[in-house]
Structures are given as structure tokens and as C-alpha cells.
Amino acid sequence: MKVEQIAIFLENKSGRLAEITQILAENGINIRALSLADTADFGILRLLVNDIQKAEAVLKAHNFTVGRTQVCVVETPDKPGGLAKVLQVIKEAELNVEYMYAFAQRSGATGIIIFRFDDLDIAITALMKAGMRVLSGAEVYAI
């Protein structure tokens, strides 16, 4: 139930993000979800894509530093309190969230939340025990 994400190191320079999305577009790679962490000096772009191998290869070929990490993707009803319920489980299980990002899939249908945990296995077990729907890689890439 772990999902692979790619992360890319970016200096804070204009046009870098455009360059990455252009490379992915030219190679027919579809972005499923995206988050950009920024500091004063650099940024880290995190992507869920439909073809992770290819995305990694083409970005590396363009001299980007690319890393792969595993994340946990939770689907929750897209209504008030949906996210709160998931976070309540995380709080009770005393899980440490490194970072998270979320998006609504289709209005009124489901919300997708992507978590990076210290210990992914414990987190997934706890979430599933609490009845949360944790998506597999195949499900995520096919969104």
C-alpha cells in the first residue's frame, strides 16, 4: 500500500518549474498530484506521476537531482470533516507526519491525501485498522 513519489531539487530560479513540466509533457507523462516545498534558498518538488520510471529517467537526463520516496495515500469522502477524521487517527496513533498534501478528486466525490511518515508501515497499519481507505500505487497512478 505504499506509493512511490518522485522528488526533485530546485534552486529558486525562475523558469525551473516550467522546464520540468515541459520535459514531462514532451514525454507523455501525466502528473497525478504535486506539491512544492520552498525555503528561502531552494525548493523541493514532489510529484505523483503515471510513469515513475520514465519520469525519473527523463528528468535525470536533464541534470535534475531526482529522488524516490514512498508515501501513503489516503482516500476520504470529500465533505466537511473528511480530513479531520484521518488526522484524528494519526493523532491517536501518535504518528509523526513529515509532510502532507491533498487535493479533491472530483467535486463532491473523494479527497486524496498524501502523507510522508517517519515509519510508513506502522502508519499504514494504523490507518487501515481505523477503517481508512489506503490506496495502492496502481490505483493512484490511474486516478
Partner: peptide
């Protein structure tokens, strides 16, 4: 480089 890269801001 890839050896030192992390997807976490904190690490970098």
C-alpha cells in the same frame, strides 16, 4: 547530488 538529496526540507 542524489546521495545527499532528500525530499524533506528539514534534511537539506
Amino acid at each position: 547530488s542524489e546521495h545527499i538529496f532528500s525530499d524533506e526540507v528539514k534534511q537539506l
